[in-house]
Nucleic acid binder design. Structure first.
Length: 309
DNA sequence: AATTACGTCAACCGCAAAGGG
DNA sequence: TCCCTTTGCGGTTGACGTAAT
């Protein structure tokens, strides 16, 4: 791919033309065109949509922009511990089936989950000098990270009872509740005017610069909590660490955690308790036998520094 | 203050499946 | 059945921001 090259070649006007089609970062004007068109006509038939909306983009590009960035029901901010737990579990179950995994994380896109996996999880596998698909790494996840996530979730719930904010909160923020912190849910340039119209603001061209709250600092600080999907059917790690029969009928993360607590240790592994963790035999090879339950960074359960250093 | 290294994520690509004529 | 278009998916890239030196 050659985005940089294309951008460089068009730097004078920040427009990248491939034939008659634009490529590269979306401008605010394009976003507004797309949002308004979809609001009026709905989505689908992306190629004709792109033409009808007056966008010099491929249908593919429009679809991607809508699904990964403009869709009003997107959840913004960094991945919560609950979501991390689900991602780990579902990935262990389905592998790189990002879209399938995303279906169980409301408001999250496959792209986002994929990025998360690659930037966080794979990084730590690399640090451990093991393959992300290796049994060693899976053991680390199962016996160290997942239990820590559960603890974090429990601690958070104990400290602050969950407010079951509907997933439409971003939608509300965009279309109905301008008083909400915009950076927590929507790029500021899309702030809704009093007349309900999306403003035609002039902001930096590159979507990267218009990008909202992707930084960890804006994260879960919004206080919004996802409502979890009704059915996450089955829990894979039980099947590998424990008896497969105990994995049935898992419904959501909270149920998941509750079941963790209720299971007999021999079934779930003592890892799920707050007692000292039984470190699998493979861990000494990884140099993690001295693992201690330390404090995790609020925004990065995956900070291996917290674990090993 | 300048430079380098690193992390994040939006956007691209190619491929395959699905749908329709 | 074939062909073309559309849609969806997973992998990859590179711009950009920030931390480290």
């Amino acid at each position: 791919m050659d985005m940089a090259h294309e951008r460089d070649s068009s730097s004078s006007e920040e427009e990248v033309m491939a034939g008659d089609l634009r490529r590269g970062p979306w401008t605010v004007e394009e976003d507004i065109l797309l949002v308004n068109y979809i609001a009026a006509h709905g989505e689908g038939r992306w190629n004709s949509l792109a033409r009808s909306a007056g966008l010099k983009r491929t249908g593919k590009s429009c679809r991607l922009r809508w699904l990964n960035y403009l869709r009003p029901d997107l959840r913004r901010g960094s991945i919560t511990p609950q979501e991390q737990l689900l991602i780990l579990e579902l990935h262990s179950r389905w592998g790189n089936r990002w879209s399938k995994i995303a279906q169980h994380l409301p408001g999250r896109t496959d792209n986002e989950i994929k990025n998360y996996w690659r930037t966080r999880v794979q990084k730590h596998a690399k640090q451990l000098k093991c393959d992300v698909n290796s049994q060693q790494f899976k053991d680390v996840m199962r016996y160290l990270w997942m239990p820590r996530l559960v603890e974090r979730i429990q601690a958070a719930e104990a400290a602050q009872p969950a407010a079951d904010t509907p997933l439409s909160w971003q939608h509300d923020a965009l279309y109905e509740s301008p008083e909400l912190p915009v950076d927590a849910c929507w790029p500021a340039e899309y702030d809704v005017a009093s007349d309900g119209q999306l403003p035609n603001t002039s902001v930096p061209e590159q979507s990267g610069t218009t990008t909202m709250s992707s930084s960890p600092s804006t994260d879960s600080g919004t206080g919004a909590q996802p409502s979890w999907p009704a059915a996450v059917d089955g829990v894979e790690w039980f099947t590998t660490a424990c008896d497969a029969s105990s994995a049935a009928a898992m419904c959501d993360t909270n149920q998941l955690i509750q079941q963790q607590q209720q299971q007999a240790p021999c079934q779930l592994g003592e890892a799920w308790t707050s007692e000292p963790l039984p470190v699998p035999a493979a861990f000494p090879e990884l140099g993690v036998t001295d693992f201690e339950i330390g404090s995790f960074d609020v925004d990065s359960i995956w900070s291996m520094d917290d674990l090993w250093c």
